[in-house]
Simulated scan of single mutants.
Amino acid sequence: MNTGKLGEEVVAQWISERGGKILARRWRWQRGEIDLIAIDRDILLFIEVKTRNRSNLDADGLLAITPQKQAKIVSTAQLFLVKHPHLADYPCRFDVAIVRHQAPTRAIPVSGGCANVGNPLHSMTDLDSGECLLLLDYLAGAFDAG
Rank of each mutant, 00 (worst) to 15 (best):
K21S: 13
A115P: 01
Q78S: 09
V99L: 05
L45D: 00
L63A: 12
F80N: 00
P104T: 07
I65Y: 07
R31Y: 09
R28S: 09
S55D: 14
L133C: 13
A64N: 11
S129K: 04
S129A: 06
E8Y: 08
V110Y: 05
L36V: 06
Y90R: 07
L44E: 03
V117W: 10
I98E: 06
C114I: 03
Q102V: 12
L81S: 04
R18T: 12
V96N: 01
L36I: 09
R41E: 13
K83L: 08
L62I: 15
L23E: 01
S55N: 14
G112P: 03
P104W: 05
G32Q: 02
E17D: 15
I108G: 04
K50G: 05
V11A: 02
A12N: 03
R54I: 05
S129R: 04
H84E: 03
S55P: 00
I15P: 02
P67M: 06
S75D: 11
T125Y: 02
S16V: 10
T76Y: 06
A38K: 01
L36C: 03
M124R: 11
Q30D: 10
A88N: 10
L57M: 09
L136S: 10
H86E: 15
S111F: 11
G113D: 04
H86N: 11
Q30C: 01
A64T: 14
L121F: 10
L121I: 12
Q78Y: 09
L127H: 08
N116M: 12
A71M: 07
E17K: 15
P85W: 08
I15M: 04
Q78A: 13
A71H: 09
N53K: 11
W27Y: 13
A12V: 04
I43H: 07
I22Q: 04
L63P: 00
P67R: 07
S129E: 04
N56W: 08
F46T: 02
I65T: 13
N119G: 08
R100C: 09
I47C: 01
C132I: 03
G7E: 04
H86W: 14
K83H: 13
G130I: 01
D89F: 15
I15A: 01
P91K: 04
D40Y: 15
R93F: 05
G7A: 08
T51L: 04
D42P: 00
V96I: 12
V110T: 15
S111K: 11
L45M: 12
Y90N: 00
G61V: 07
R52M: 07
A115S: 09
R25G: 03
V10Y: 02
